[in-house]
Amino acid sequence: KEPDSGLGIEEEVSVQKRVRVPNVKLDEERLLGPAGIPKLRKRAAGLKLKGKGHEFSDASRLLSFYQLWLDDLFPKARFLDALAMVEKAGHKKALVTARNEWINEGRPKASNDDDD
């Protein structure tokens, strides 16, 4: 009877809004996760700086070290934007405690070094 029944026009369409996939965020969870700062620390061992006389090439090396790490961690944002996000997340409680721990890890060693 109805010519357009085959087109599926009369079938009921659900208008219920589906939940959007949440935006991926660069937050403290991500930073504390395995791809976050732990990885940065692991990689830092491989970072070789030449020292005096090579300040600018060293700086370039350091910056690309951070950039590649951030690109792995949060590929969609640009370097400077990602840095700002990381900085912002750094004020969160979880990160503050973690930062303190990391500093404390180096503390006894650092105070020994300082005696020179």
Binding site: I37, L40, R41, A44, L47, Y66, L83, V86, E87, G90, H91, L95, R99, W102, I103, E105, G106
Partner: peptide, 10 residues
């Protein structure tokens, strides 16, 4: 060495 991490933050 911990400065590597702290360099990300204020």
């Amino acid at each position: 060495p911990e400065l590597i991490i702290e360099m990300l933050f204020s």
